[in-house]
Computed example of a mutant assay.
Amino acid sequence: MTNNISYGNLYIVPTPIGNYNDITQRALAILNKVDFILSEDTRKTGILLKYFNINNKLYSYYEFNEYKQTINVIKSLQNGKNIALVSDAGTPLINDPGYRIVQLCRTKFNNTIKIIPLGGPCAAILALSASGLPTNRFCYEGFLSKKKNKRIKRLQELKFEYRTLIIYESKHRILNCLYDIKNIFGENRYIVIAKDLTKKWENIHGDTVFNLINWINLDKNRLKGEIVLIVQGYNQTVIINNNDKIIKILYELKKELSTKTAIKIVSQIYKIKKNILYKLIISKNID
């Protein structure tokens, strides 16, 4: 017996994060033709649709109605409806609701409901591409916890992460976050702050976390807007060469101990490779 069931498609549609000119022709075509659009914030999406003269049904899908709406969406897809999923801005599901719908489509329906992602803007990738930090390996952390203790714990776990880190932060917590990074990663860790990407007030600024904090404190307007932090990954050679504390300890130990013993002690305390410490002693002329 032939199965004549024809399921609908779920389109993952990125929308501009600031500059409306970044929307693609394909995104506009999909938003026009689907049976309805599922949006995290119908007010924001409504403004976007109005700007492009798109008259389509718009339904909300956010954290607090996610379970109920997931069931409704799956039923609609089963009935052959085509649906577009958008977020407030940028690529859906990146720190936004939508995961449960996609997961159910993949698992419960064994790929019979097609998930069709479209290309488009993503603040994390835009900031990374303009940071000047390594892009071959990176780690996306999204928003760190609002609670200081949890934020500190997570940063401690990330202290020795060698990949470039991508962190989202709000204007209300950015300074607290930077102070925590300084205290845990060290004041010389290089960070790029990307603010209001693609908008009129776009600003991308990189410096050590120590200097970055001072830069923000000089002008609190630099706190405004949507912020992405691109944080240099842990690099023993770079970080140790700029760590005055480690250099001072080696200098003091060398007064009383052999080079080999001084290196062994510092290596055990700071979990630093011995060959890196040996190169440091030579480069800094520590005798």
Rank of each mutant, 00 (worst) to 15 (best):
A130P: 05
A84Q: 05
G120L: 00
L77N: 01
Y278N: 11
N79L: 13
L158S: 07
N110G: 08
I116E: 10
G186T: 06
W215K: 04
T237P: 02
L77F: 03
L218P: 05
K68W: 09
R26E: 02
G8W: 11
T112P: 00
N32V: 09
I166G: 01
E161H: 13
Y190Q: 10
N21T: 15
N149G: 07
K260T: 12
R43A: 05
E40C: 04
E256I: 12
Y59R: 13
T24H: 09
K260Y: 11
I213Y: 02
S129Q: 05
Q232N: 11
N183A: 14
R163I: 06
F143W: 07
H172I: 14
F210L: 14
Y168W: 05
N72P: 03
F64E: 15
K108L: 14
I282R: 12
H172C: 09
G186L: 08
Y162K: 15
K150L: 08
N188R: 13
G186R: 04
D244F: 15
E169N: 11
E63M: 08
K264T: 10
N19E: 09
R106W: 02
V231D: 01
I213T: 05
L48H: 06
P97V: 02
T107E: 15
I54A: 07
T107S: 14
T15A: 04
R106M: 12
E252Y: 12
C139G: 02
C139N: 12
K147P: 01
V228K: 03
K199P: 01
W201Y: 14
G98Q: 01
N56W: 08
K273Q: 13
N136Y: 05
Y99M: 08
V238C: 10
R222L: 06
D207A: 15
I152M: 02
S258Y: 06
L133H: 01
E202V: 02
N211G: 13
T259A: 07
R154K: 15
F143P: 04
L178I: 11
N4R: 12
N55V: 14
I101Y: 05
E157I: 07
H205M: 05
P92K: 05
L212T: 08
Y270K: 10
W201Q: 12
R151M: 10
V228A: 10
A89T: 08
W215P: 01
S283T: 12
G225P: 02
D35K: 01
N55R: 14
I23L: 08
M1Y: 09
F185K: 00
Y162R: 15
S129R: 01
L85M: 14
L144D: 00
I113V: 02
L253N: 07
V192A: 06
Q268P: 03
E161N: 15
I181G: 01
A29G: 11
I125P: 00
T164H: 08
N82V: 07
K50F: 09
R106T: 11
E202M: 02
A194G: 13
A124E: 02
I166L: 14
R222F: 04
I152K: 06
Y168F: 09
Y67V: 13
L128D: 00
R173W: 12
G225D: 03
D196C: 09
Q25Y: 15
I5T: 14
L250A: 06
V73W: 04
I276S: 05
N56G: 11
E161I: 11
V73M: 06
E252A: 09
